[in-house]
Design a protein around this nucleic acid. Structure first.
Lengths: 187, 187
DNA sequence: AGCCTGATGGCAGTTACTGACATCAGGAGG
DNA sequence: CCTCCTGATGTCAGTAACTGCCATCAGGCT
């Protein structure tokens, strides 16, 4: 066994979600989270830039998966088609986890404006990355940014509907495809 | 003359933009801003919930104008047409101000992730308000949210292009109309 | 055996914010 | 003219989010 208990980062994430759910975000201090994870406040801030970031630890992975999927779409695919591939990948990754956990996380995020802000920033980061890939595929501006942004809107809307929905509701991928179809039909 | 110099709020906004530009957001304390405006730190936080908010004082006005314009679009107009009306109103209001001031503000916001985050939150707030109006017009979900979000994307992209552009470049309204046309053409 | 590395702890300092209470010019009513 | 009240401001103390700096020390490398 190593010098320390393994996966400090994961323990911090778990403790944070628990405490944010129980006592609320504002009523939870970084020191409390660290303590529950068997660490100190200082170590918390080595793993996460701030109190909010601890809820978004998986963000780079999701971004990379989406970007890879968009990049691997067939040449012939239009911008929205390519973005659709990215949404498939996102649905596959996010759909793996338990829906009740996603719901718990959403509840916490929705209950605090600062956390909501951070989520928007993450979506914007994804969108910027997607737009970059689209440009590499020959899509110009502002089309690339708009297609990417539209895709993240679809993801957000679908994710919300999916989490709100019953445990036996439609799969995340289906929800996203449906939303994307409606976006295209907009006049 | 009143007991205090008038327009504390405006003085705080002006001082903040000046200091954020000169020394940077992180290197500016709320006390410094207040002091430059002839006030105290405590009064700063009575006028603005936090250090970022001072750059977004005009936000409710813009939101209300956009919402009013969307609401007053003809019954026959589709969601994106109605959103287009809102963009016209936004362009009219934002185009009034001096382009160099807008550029200064954008520069500050772009230089700090936290400020960027707040701007995204404001756009999301506008979008939520627009979606509400669209639903009143009989647009369902998720169409209302997606149309509203798309409109805010267009506004953001156009505003950026307009601010980046030369002083004698196209008017803001024209830039937005152009961007909206391109969004509709997306496939 | 000696050295290096990387994750952690300890500690002091700054500053963003908050709550409670004090102040006091000017307006409203007498 | 006097009095009371209101609302914007000031003062002060307190919490907690971060940050920089230095210390520690098991395990791996040479």
């Amino acid at each position: 066994m190593g010098r320390w208990k393994p996966d400090s980062r994961g323990r911090l994430e778990e403790a944070a979600l628990t405490l944010y759910s129980q006592r609320g975000f504002d009523q939870t201090t970084a020191a409390q989270i660290a303590s529950m994870a068997g660490l100190t406040e200082r170590t918390f801030f080595r793993h996460f830039a701030d109190k909010r970031e601890v809820l978004f630890g998986g963000s780079p992975i999701l971004r990379d998966r989406i970007v890879a999927a968009v990049a691997s779409a067939p040449e012939s695919a239009g911008p929205l088609d390519a973005v659709g591939k990215g949404l498939d990948a996102a649905a596959a990754l996010l759909g793996e986890g338990r829906r009740d956990l996603a719901r718990k996380r959403f509840t916490v995020i929705a209950s605090n404006p600062g956390l909501h802000e951070r989520e928007l920033a993450k979506l914007a980061e994804y969108a910027a990355a997607i737009a970059g890939v689209l440009r590499l595929r020959g899509v110009g501006e502002p089309e690339a940014s708009m297609a990417a942004d539209a895709g993240m809107t679809v993801m957000r809307v679908a994710l919300q509907a999916w989490a709100d929905d019953d445990e036996r509701g439609p799969e995340l991928g289906a929800v996203m495809e449906n939303a994307l179809r409606k976006l295209r039909a907009l006049r």
